[in-house]
Design a protein around this nucleic acid. Structure first.
Lengths: 141, 141
DNA sequence: CTACAATCTGTAGCGACTACAGGATCAAGA
DNA sequence: TCTTGATCCTGTAGTCGCTACAGATTGTAG
């Protein structure tokens, strides 16, 4: 099931392109200890295998999903330690709450922006309701 | 209409506390030119009036709502220049789109997290579906 | 073999703050 | 009036999560 020529050890640039991240991001993750030091070529060029690529994808996806570096570090520690599915579950559901709160805030924001924009006459009126709305002394949600 | 003792010139710490931001943030905004240099006391302590407080609240609220410093700078420039309600309107509606996209992304994320979490058995199973889901090679949104 | 691309290293820069050190000033109590 | 302690002043360094750069080395195609 494992085609051995489909992933013949990638160099940093190739890996970056394949997973869709910046070249330097990989070195950064290695530097802060999220990615282990990969094996090197004769001339000290990093060589990544499928396992490292997978780990990198995990990190990147986690970042996309709004996990902080430290949260991802925790997730990886659990994964590395084997077992802890329950812990991963806890961390994830906890994160879901954060996401839900963000959504709620943004929807509130959207309402405010839409309302104020709607009130804004499209011609050059002297005092713009958007400015007034945003500089209100903290009330009127 | 203007009660003269309700706001008797605030010092930096007082203003920070009143608007609910960090003390240094105010100096930072002054440094990057979002807040004008305020008048000073004999001993060079900054003194803020209601106008400056309002401007600060505008900046802070804008940041909360996800505007970048440069977007806020633009908004303020328009407000300062008087008139340009149409421009403010344009900038704002443009921003509404950004907010809508953010909401959409977060909801997608929430779905993914919820789905994977739901699939996760609460006991310590050997390979956690969340880990697998997040390190999958980019497909299965 | 040569050219040129890719990688190596360390370090600096980004945005948007936040914290700190070492000194000056302010407001209140004795 | 003096003193004490809180607040403020300045400049600078640190934070997070990258991203970019410079100058040297290596890998590879022609």
């Amino acid at each position: 099931m494992k085609r051995r020529d489909s992933m013949p050890l990638l160099r940093r640039g190739e890996l970056a392109e394949r997973v869709g991240c910046n070249l330097e991001t990989i070195r950064y993750y290695e530097g802060i200890g999220l990615l282990p030091h990969p094996p090197r070529s004769e001339g000290r060029h990093r060589l990544y295998d499928a396992e490292l690529a997978k780990r990198l994808r995990f990190i990147l996806r986690g970042r996309e999903l709004g996990f902080s570096i430290e949260e991802i570090r925790a997730l990886l520690a659990i994964a590395d330690g084997g077992g802890g599915c329950a812990e991963v579950y806890a961390l994830t559901t906890q994160h879901i709450d954060v996401v839900k709160r963000k959504i709620a805030d943004l929807r509130k924001l959207e309402r405010i922006l839409s309302n104020t924009a709607a009130r804004c006459a499209r011609d050059a009126s002297p005092d713009c309701p958007i400015i007034e709305a945003l500089s209100a002394p903290r009330r009127a949600q």
